[in-house]
């Protein structure tokens, strides 16, 4: 039996879809059978991020309404063995699927896949309730901004109300230079406020823009820091103990200088 994980955030634009795509590609590259489910009905995007937009025939609403069988709607990635996508419908709205149907769908997928990763829409309405209905675990994505952390806090409360306890946190787009200058909240600051376990930290990286432009996953890039960060997240999901990379490693010189002139 597979495991159903929902990727959520509350606020839009913090990197839910990118994180879903990279966790999925990461797990598939490590030999797992993965189904990615785009639950953002009406605003589907996971297909373009994965570069699979030209291969959609059926979507999630076709499956739940009985227009096609689940197997027909699942798109198989040609580059990564084991990676599959169930795309969202683009012309319907969030009410086209019910939480009950989502639970049924996840149960079906669990029989065949090791991991089912659900890309949750932004917001806390029906789309959110649908996305979390069939999930067993939750990942909350945030960025080091007041608005994103506030929404993450709200989402953590709503996840717990839905029975998804102990969600794990991904901090996205952290800029080490700004953290060092004291102009961006640090990992510790955010963990301190939200009081949940950390799954991983993704540094701000231009390569994510570039790979997304091409419809590729940065997790497969062996030389980038963001790719490494996503690989670490993947391994932690698989149950491995991976130490958090010390992101403050370049701090040495400034720290010494600060000490010399007697400033904190």
């Amino acid at each position: 039996m597979g495991e159903v994980i929902v990727v959520t955030s509350g606020k839009g634009g913090v990197g839910k879809t990118t994180t879903t795509a990279n966790i999925g590609a990461g797990l598939a590259s490590m030999g797992c059978k993965v189904a990615l489910v785009d639950a953002d009905i009406g605003l589907r995007n996971l297909d373009v991020v994965l570069g699979l937009e030209n291969r959609i025939v059926y979507d999630i609403v076709d499956v739940t309404s009985g227009n096609c069988r689940l197997r027909q709607a699942l798109i198989k990635d040609k580059r990564l063995e084991g990676l599959h996508l169930l795309p969202a419908a683009q012309t319907k709205d969030k009410t086209a699927v019910s939480p009950e149907q989502m639970r049924e769908l996840c149960g079906e997928l669990k029989k065949e896949f090791d991991y089912i990763i659900i890309d949750c829409p932004a917001g806390i309405e029906q789309g959110f309730r649908n996305a979390v209905a069939g999930a067993e675990k939750a990942v909350v994505v945030t960025t080091p901004e007041v608005s994103a952390v506030r929404d993450a806090d709200r989402i953590i409360g709503l996840l717990e109300a839905a029975g998804l306890y102990e969600p794990k946190l991904v901090i996205n787009r952290i800029r080490l230079k700004m953290v060092r200058q004291g102009d961006m909240m640090s990992i510790e600051d955010i963990i301190d406020i939200l009081a949940i376990d950390l799954l991983g930290v993704i540094p701000e990286d231009e390569l994510i823009v570039i790979t997304t432009n091409r419809g590729e996953a940065v997790v497969l890039d062996q030389n980038s820091r963001s790719g490494q960060a996503y690989r670490n997240i993947t391994r932690r999901i698989l149950g491995e103990e991976v130490p958090m990379v010390n992101l403050e490693e370049e701090d040495g010189f400034l720290k010494k200088l600060r000490k010399i002139i007697g400033l904190k």
Binding site: Q181, G182, D183, M184, R258, L263, K264
Partner: peptide
Amino acid sequence: LFSRDNGSKN
């Protein structure tokens, strides 16, 4: 430039 305390993160 060198102090963490004056940053906007606080």
